[in-house]
């Protein structure tokens, strides 16, 4: 579960009280978009390193666990490394650029998610996609935790009975398949019940409330970082 730590990120977003946590989701998405656009469109290693350090500084300011965040950002970068290998032209510049870009982009996204809860992000996403998709995202997010708890319990039970061993791959596969199969049956049956419940409560195709696009007094920092990053990237591009 180390590489897909949705529950930990969710907890940090809910429990944090920093200025970034208190800023509106809209301003934080603007900041992330500005940083991401700079990362995508620049090929200057110094600027990319600067953006990565800026991300880390903001993570420190938001009092998020720095090492944990860096480890989470390093996971996709490990895959970027594989991709970087395919892009080698005999030189190391392009692979290095790919890895630094990967790190900077991952840390930027994690900064947003570590300070903004998923439902708030889905509320903003509902402006960009059909309601049915934003509703599905919210349901997926909630059901993920329910299913994760069930599978965790199942795996603990199997482990206690000696059903998961380091050296018996075939037994492990059979037992995990059994757990996932049971979970699938559970999901199939529960989905029909959930539909009945939603119908009874008058579901008319809207679960996620749309996020309000209003600025608050805590928005000055993300707005400043966003505008500053864009301006710096533009100046850098014109000079280079």
């Amino acid at each position: 579960m180390a590489h897909l730590d949705i529950s930990a990120i969710d907890r940090w977003a809910y429990e944090g009280k920093s200025i970034l946590h208190l800023a509106s989701p809209c301003s934080k998405v603007f900041m992330m978009a500005a940083m991401l656009a700079s990362i995508i469109f620049t090929s200057d290693l110094r600027l990319l390193l600067g953006l990565y350090l800026l991300g880390l500084a903001l993570i420190a300011l938001a009092r998020l666990p720095m090492l944990h965040m860096m480890a989470l950002a390093a996971y996709p970068a490990a895959f970027a490394f594989l991709f970087a290998l395919s892009q080698m032209n005999g030189g190391w510049q392009r692979p290095l650029l790919i890895i630094v870009k990967a790190q900077a982009a991952a840390i930027t996204l994690l900064l947003l998610l570590g300070t903004t809860s998923y439902p708030q992000v889905f509320g903003l996403a509902s402006y960009l996609m059909p309601r049915v998709l934003s509703d599905s995202l919210l349901l997926t997010y909630r059901l993920f935790f329910i299913l994760l708890e069930l599978i965790d319990r199942f795996l603990s039970a199997i482990r206690l009975r000696g059903g998961l061993s380091s050296f018996r791959l075939s037994t492990n596969l059979r037992n995990i398949a059994l757990g996932l199969g049971r979970l699938l049956v559970f999901s199939f049956e529960r989905s029909q019940r959930l539909y009945d419940v939603m119908n009874l409560r008058g579901y008319q195709g809207q679960i996620v409330p749309r996020a309000q696009l209003r600025a608050g007094r805590n928005d000055w920092l993300p707005a400043l970082v966003g505008v500053g990053t864009l301006a710096l990237s533009l100046v850098w591009k014109m000079r280079g």
Binding site: H3, V132, S136, L143, I146, S165, F167, L183
Partner: peptide
């Protein structure tokens, strides 16, 4: 589509859960 929505969400959540499982000893997901 509304009737299918819960099933869709369950299926997506199942995919996410399966991605978070590692098969020892190969650490494959």
């Amino acid at each position: 589509l509304r009737k299918k929505l819960p099933l869709l969400a369950f299926a997506a959540a199942m995919m996410l859960v399966s991605m978070s499982l590692e098969i020892v000893p190969l650490a494959y997901h």
